[in-house]
Amino acid sequence: MAPTYDHPGERAAQDPVRLLAIRDEPLSLDEVFKAVGDDAAGGTALFVGTVRNHDAGADVDELGYSSHPSAEAEMRRVAEEVAAAYPVRALAAVHRVGDLRVGDLAVIVAVSCPHRSEAFEACRKLIDDLKHEVPIWKHQRFSDGTEEWVGAC
């Protein structure tokens, strides 16, 4: 059985959601990493999603992201649910919209927690829920001239 500690740093912070944004400009790893800095955090997990050059066997030239007006509110809801489920000291998530090229940063999420395992789990939950629940859609344009929307209903 893992030891339990009675220290305030072992618990979630009062207001751990430090940065949430949907932006049409390049994203900054430094900004997100700094946003989740916390002296009580022993583990910080960061996920960076980039535009890759292929999808489902086809070459991708570029893509565009668009979002519903409710996307930031949904992002906050997802972030608050993750913060409630884990001992999150700090959390940040930013997603890009607009036209992106291969190699561009599309999304960055980061979570700091008292311990690494919690940080990994919370970060994975944050990115998975963000991708499944926040209304942000991807329009991929392929080298063969075809295109497709991903995530649009």
Score class of each variant (00 low, 15 high):
1 M>V: 04
1 M>R: 00
1 M>S: 03
4 T>L: 13
5 Y>F: 11
5 Y>H: 11
8 P>Y: 14
11 R>Q: 15
12 A>N: 12
14 Q>D: 15
15 D>M: 04
16 P>H: 10
17 V>A: 06
19 L>A: 11
19 L>H: 11
19 L>K: 12
20 L>G: 03
21 A>E: 12
22 I>F: 13
24 D>P: 05
25 E>R: 05
26 P>S: 02
26 P>T: 01
31 E>V: 11
32 V>F: 10
34 K>P: 00
34 K>Y: 01
36 V>N: 01
36 V>T: 05
37 G>V: 02
38 D>I: 09
40 A>W: 02
40 A>S: 07
40 A>M: 01
43 G>Q: 08
44 T>M: 14
45 A>S: 15
46 L>W: 12
46 L>A: 13
47 F>M: 10
49 G>R: 02
49 G>V: 04
50 T>K: 06
50 T>H: 08
50 T>E: 08
51 V>R: 08
52 R>M: 06
52 R>P: 11
53 N>W: 03
53 N>A: 13
54 H>A: 13
55 D>Q: 01
55 D>L: 02
56 A>N: 14
57 G>A: 06
57 G>P: 10
58 A>N: 09
60 V>M: 06
62 E>A: 11
63 L>A: 02
63 L>Y: 00
65 Y>Q: 07
65 Y>R: 07
66 S>Y: 00
67 S>M: 11
69 P>R: 14
69 P>T: 12
70 S>Q: 05
72 E>T: 07
73 A>I: 03
73 A>F: 06
74 E>A: 13
75 M>V: 07
78 V>K: 08
79 A>Y: 00
80 E>Q: 01
83 A>C: 15
88 V>P: 14
88 V>A: 12
89 R>I: 07
90 A>R: 15
91 L>Y: 03
91 L>Q: 06
93 A>R: 02
93 A>T: 02
93 A>H: 08
94 V>G: 02
96 R>P: 08
97 V>G: 04
97 V>Q: 02
98 G>L: 12
98 G>P: 13
99 D>K: 09
99 D>R: 12
100 L>Q: 10
100 L>V: 11
100 L>N: 09
100 L>F: 09
101 R>S: 15
105 L>F: 09
108 I>L: 03
108 I>Q: 00
109 V>Y: 01
109 V>T: 14
110 A>D: 04
113 C>L: 04
114 P>N: 13
119 A>G: 06
120 F>K: 11
121 E>R: 12
122 A>E: 09
123 C>G: 15
124 R>P: 03
126 L>A: 13
127 I>N: 08
130 L>D: 03
133 E>L: 13
134 V>M: 07
136 I>V: 13
136 I>K: 02
140 Q>F: 00
142 F>W: 03
142 F>C: 05
142 F>E: 03
143 S>A: 15
146 T>L: 04
146 T>N: 14
147 E>P: 04
147 E>V: 00
149 W>T: 10
151 G>P: 08
151 G>K: 07
152 A>C: 06
153 C>F: 10
